[in-house]
Design a protein around this nucleic acid. Structure first.
Lengths: 236, 236
DNA sequence: ACCTGAACACCGTTCAAGT
DNA sequence: ACCTGAACACCGTTCAAGT
């Protein structure tokens, strides 16, 4: 790693696995899943499509590496680079991880499909591991560790993926919007859709539309995390 | 719908949206996500690629329709065609829906990525609605309905997607296997991978590998559902 | 109304040739 | 060792032409 960095300094614009992955993330964020092509990537890196293959095996590996980078940054920041003091309790730390994942899926709409396609090693495994370390610190009977962490990580990923999908459903780009759209607008728009659903087919969803519009997604997400944590500690 | 069926009888092999979607599902199940191409689909239906476009707008719509069909069949069976008597309690009904979703993701490995990409209408919404109807029947304060159902459905989807990914990680096709692989083999293989992880990076995951191998995924999944249900009813 | 199949623009990947 | 860019096989989608 240190060696690679020293090497890269020699030529400012030298290609590297790291630079390629960063460019891929930018492309995915800006243009969506379909925007990531080797030709577009090559253009952005001022090179030819073939050059990328010297550093990366193929497109799946690139997608995997991009997911990994985004996730580790998200849960890494949660632990270290935050302006607030480092988490003091395991519960605190778990909240930080949860929020990190939630926001990562919110900022990178392509990540959801990736996390559900990638096998358990890599990005998902990082989340599992970090949560596990905190559950250990919680002092739960070690017999129940696997179940506890797997329940917790499934919930966190489930909510975050859903939330990311919900946000994409509004699809601001299609409406000529630019940049981040505020959460209230997304919810209001989606609530309007729900209200317009067929009465016969979706009676429940229709009645619950106002609650969708007004709810505080992050707060309710964390309440769900605490609910599971309570179940975990009570059960041991 | 009735008219379309009558029409189809005229010519045994006439194309229809329904037949195309069914063929797409088979193709996805047998060959995976990359196996679904309009050319392969056309060959299987003994027609040209262009013919499909008369019935279906484009590939995303086809994927959406396939996901919808699989999900509604899964939670439809859960309610009606089961050999056991129809569910008597809301809790029972919720378990049936949960298991239906779980098994659908297990049987159709491509569904995970699809559910996390598709906006909230369609497949995911069906699950949300069905769960909602049962939560209403549970007699929870209607003020909390949205939160309750959204927590529950996120958890159910999260676990099911993870489980599907876990199963795919073993990738029986790559090992020359055919047909369904039993759950124990998948878990054992994955547990072996976890044991071989780097000690520095994945201390927790390593120690928990034996628990992965021996755990009863479906039972623990339902325990998680009950945990959330308890939280829901206690909170109201 | 429904189907055919050639054609178009584009994509992932390879590879001989360069430096 | 690393990069270039043409070439290959393949894909989603369109559309003039058929029935």
């Amino acid at each position: 790693m240190a060696k690679a960095a020293r090497k890269a300094e020699r030529r400012e614009d030298a290609l590297s696995r790291e630079r390629i992955v960063e460019a891929a993330i930018t492309l995915l964020d800006e243009e969506g899943e379909t925007g990531l092509t080797f030709r577009a990537l090559a253009t952005r890196l001022s090179t030819g499509p073939g050059a990328i293959y010297w550093h990366i095996d193929n497109k799946s590996e690139l997608l995997l590496a991009a997911s990994n980078a985004v996730v580790s940054r998200a849960i890494g920041e949660a632990a270290t680079a935050s302006p607030s003091p480092p988490p003091t309790s395991p519960r605190d730390a778990i909240h930080k991880i949860a929020v990190g994942v939630f926001e990562a899926l919110d900022d990178h709409p392509w990540l959801g499909a990736q996390l559900s396609r990638a096998p358990w090693e890599t990005a998902t495994l990082q989340i599992f591991e970090r949560l596990g370390q905190q559950i250990q610190a919680l002092g739960v009977s070690s017999r129940a560790h696997f179940t506890a962490v797997s329940t917790l990580s499934s919930y966190i990923l489930g909510v975050s993926i859903q939330n990311g999908a919900l946000r994409r459903a509004f699809n601001p780009a299609d409406h000529g919007f630019e940049g981040p759209v505020d959460r209230a607008a997304v919810l209001a728009s989606q609530a309007a859709r729900w209200s317009a659903l067929d009465v016969q087919e979706y009676p429940f969803t229709r009645t619950v539309a106002p609650q969708l519009r007004d709810h505080d997604d992050l707060a309710e997400f964390l309440a769900g995390v605490d609910l599971i944590l309570t179940g975990i500690t009570a059960g041991s």
